[in-house]
Design a protein around this nucleic acid. Structure first.
Length: 149
DNA sequence: GCCAACGTTGGC
DNA sequence: GCCAACGTTGGC
């Protein structure tokens, strides 16, 4: 799951403990969030950062439910075509799990043969992406993380 | 700030 | 249902 650290960094997430992942306005990303279950782990990725990369791990604590900002006229996430009866956009809640002792940069990920098939490498723009268990474990190991995926 | 690689919109 | 025009993302 990607976030721009200037907007919401993993430090902010650690401070908050848990947060709702609002503002996803892409159908593929939305569909992926719908498949998430409570307890699922996620890589917390810093996009638009210097350098970009994986900062740590979060865990899903609430499965997909309507993102209320889609109905807020003043929100940048407002979608006038979404109704209360059939909400178009969802969000999940995630909780902080850990910040890696070592940040895993996109460069390192690209340079790791076993990770060359990651969506992050092949279709980098998607803001919520699937990660295989194998790739997840590899990145946790690279980051010196403690969580077991 | 640039721009490639998308994703979305809307006219037809 | 096609596709041109436009908007956005995100690495660089």
């Amino acid at each position: 799951m990607k976030s721009e650290p200037g907007t919401y960094a993993i430090n902010d997430h650690e401070r908050d403990g848990s947060t709702c992942w609002e503002g996803v306005r892409n159908y593929q990303a939305r569909n992926l969030m719908r498949t998430m279950a409570v307890g699922d782990l996620a890589l917390f990725y810093h996009s638009n950062a210097k350098p970009p990369g994986v900062a740590g791990v979060a865990r899903v604590v609430r499965e997909a439910y309507p993102d209320p900002w889609q109905w807020e006229r003043d929100s940048k996430y407002y979608d006038p075509r979404s109704s209360r009866e059939s909400p178009r956009w969802v969000m999940v809640d995630i909780e902080f799990v850990e910040t890696f002792p070592r940040f895993v940069s996109l460069d390192e990920i690209r340079a790791t043969p076993g990770l060359s098939e990651m969506v992050l490498v092949k279709r980098s723009r998607l803001s919520v992406q699937p990660v295989t268990r194998e790739a997840f474990r590899t990145i946790v190991k690279m980051g010196g993380g403690r969580v077991r995926g």
